[in-house]
Design a protein around this nucleic acid. Sequence first.
DNA 1: GATATACTACCGGTTTTCTGGTATATTTCC
DNA 2: GGAAATATACCAGAAAACCGGTAGTATATC
Lengths: 212, 212
Amino acid sequence: MLQHSKQLIIAIVDDHPIVIEGLKNLLSSETGFEIVSFTTGADFLNYLRTNDADVVLLDIVLPDINGLELCKDLKKKHPDMTILAISNQAERSIIVQMLQNGASGYLLKNASADELLDCIDKGMRGEQALSSEAREIMSRPATNDWNGIPSLTKREKEILRLISDGFSSTDIAEKLFLSQLTVETHRRNIIQKFQTNNMFSVIKLAIEHKII
Amino acid sequence: MLQHSKQLIIAIVDDHPIVIEGLKNLLSSETGFEIVSFTTGADFLNYLRTNDADVVLLDIVLPDINGLELCKDLKKKHPDMTILAISNQAERSIIVQMLQNGASGYLLKNASADELLDCIDKGMRGEQALSSEAREIMSRPATNDWNGIPSLTKREKEILRLISDGFSSTDIAEKLFLSQLTVETHRRNIIQKFQTNNMFSVIKLAIEHKII
DNA sequence: GATATACTACCGGTTTTCTGGTATATTTCC
DNA sequence: GGAAATATACCAGAAAACCGGTAGTATATC
């Protein structure tokens, strides 16, 4: 099915040992694959300092790093790496974000073995690789007026997280050694980016789209 | 590790082929286990009409039936069956419900292979079998003022939902034909129930605990 | 019939957020 | 090097939320 001159390295990054075992098992039917696995993003990044990987099967929910962020990072540092997201998250917006962040494909965890192998194949050939359910979600008419998730800066995310934890602008200003007025400027920009009228709805949207 | 006169049948009920593969792989190191697997509750129930199972590894999120309900059913019809829940749900309330419904144990999906085997062993000996993280969750009512999620009344939920959609108290009052002062009383009660200082953190908690 | 819970409503005062500006460093990227 | 994005900071006024009370009605529940 796949032909390569050198041995391909597939990295699995998922915090569920059971899932790792399953993936290894499914991939073991293919020869010529070297498989390495990690349960945290940090472990994988550490590995990459001295090693390489051709294909990454990346879970979105990780204990230390958000898979969306990790994907962006990885693509920046290793543009040739093929990243396939493997997740339970079936929300359209998350799939879109993942693809925007450089992922070659998106697999729901209920994908079959055949689909998995097919997606790896497609991904490495540079095609977009979606599992059947992911494809179904993406092909549904864009039901909503919500065409795109605003991207927040680091600072904005930081402040939004603190707001959602119940801190007021003055609290946050103290915590981050900023003027309270600066924090309020950030608040305003965040609300504007979400095109909504107050922070309450921003928090809801941000959590639902896994931005915080 | 385990000694039995007859061959034990382990049933895996999980809608993720990858997880099934993983579990099979992990259990294959043990001899004397016959393993059957199903991706829906209906499939498993159907199988049980002509067959038997000694141990069930049961996912809570299934496409057709809620794992909590299924567990209750199974225990009623097959009291000797050992049921171990395997789930991503890390909420205390869900673990409690599952054990009340007759499950012998609860494993988070990030459990290791050793834990899995240990739990199966414990479960069949009639002991309670929790994975380390599940045990950790269960053993921390130490933070006692927070015994789970506060229960909101119908009205409170309704108002909380509207707040999270960006409506102000006056908006909501108009919408629900109430005095704006009434809405604000509800707000205060909601915040009090969550024992927090403002609505921002309430919304975060409410979404995370699937109240809204 | 008594008690508890939920829903409704009000007052007064304080704090915080929101809105509309403007503006200057600093960092990032082409 | 220069443009764009990001982070910082300020002012002032309006709107909304938050806080600590109190209290009547209605509806269950025991």
